[in-house]
Nucleic acid binder design. Structure first.
Ligand SMILES: [Mn+2]
Ligand SMILES: [Mn+2]
Ligand SMILES: [Zn+2]
Ligand SMILES: [Zn+2]
Lengths: 147, 147
DNA sequence: TTTAATCTTGAGAATAAGTTTCAAATTAAA
DNA sequence: TTTAATTTGAAACTTATTCTCAAGATTAAA
């Protein structure tokens, strides 16, 4: 069984356990998201679905995202220009996002040690950490060179 | 000379150097911000000014904030519910903000080592870091105990 | 199956932070 | 002063996200 259909089955279970109804819209949205290999926002996702001929409304996309976050398949990873960006978080720990303030490009940096230390800091302060956002704002290599 | 009037003088200089005009509105806003000991958002700041009898408009508050960020007196430190929060950054390095997803309280955690490592990570990747946001989302001690 | 209760949907209205517009007021240099 | 350039307040605008509600879909029971 493919990873995707495994997740779809899991999601159906999750929905049922919550006493909600499993709909084709919810499944369509999940499947489309699982195809994304990068960060995405609601508009991008919605446009992809429409192009494929899907009839889901933007409202349903907005309504499904919190469910997928709760189920643990995606996470909000940063906000830019008052828009939220998400990414699939299968086996993926939170990580650093470097955001270039000139070209708005976003790059990922993984640092396991840093991730661990962040967890520790929360625990030291008697907090129960769930997730985190670490965004470094600056100038990327290309913009520095004036490309 | 007080720290505040020193900064006010500096700010006047900064404004002049940019070829802009030094106005009472800009000074009022700066002075009010310097009084804040915690994180603030535009609405809070605007309300404080109005209560004091100030006639500044919200538009001017929105227009002055980027100048104060550029001058280095304040920084945007996190976003919550589609609102930006700022704080005075006199001698204050960026630091960790722990945000309780239940009570929405925000706590600060300082970790110089972490701060240094974040800078290094950016440089390793050939980025010029300017600032960063590190927000840990979780449950605070009080909320865990059900207070 | 049918039924019936409950939930979800799409469409569009509503909300609200932040930005823009523009005429009137203010600044600052001469 | 005079004058050119900038800034202001008020209100209109923009835009992501949320809300509303009637119509349609799902589910468990009959
Ligand atoms: Mn990422
Ligand atoms: Mn802080
Ligand atoms: Zn760049
Ligand atoms: Zn709390």
């Amino acid at each position: 069984m493919s990873v995707t259909s495994e997740i779809v089955k899991d999601f159906k279970n999750f929905i049922k356990k919550k006493g909600l109804k499993y709909t084709s819209e919810r499944e369509e949205i999940l499947k489309e998201i699982l195809k994304s290999k990068q960060h995405f926002d609601v508009d991008e996702l919605y446009m992809k679905l429409r192009k494929k001929g899907s009839k889901v409304s933007k409202a349903s996309v907005y309504r499904t995202i919190p469910l997928l976050v709760e189920a643990g398949y995606i996470q909000e990873v940063y906000k830019q220009d008052s828009r939220s960006y998400y990414e699939v978080t299968l086996d993926k720990l939170p990580h650093i996002h470097f955001i270039c303030i000139k070209c708005k490009s976003v790059d990922e940096i993984i640092d396991d040690y840093l991730a661990e230390r962040i967890q520790e800091e929360a625990k030291n302060k008697n907090y129960t950490p769930l997730t985190y956002h670490l965004e470094i704002f600056g100038i990327c290599h290309k913009c520095k060179k004036g490309v």
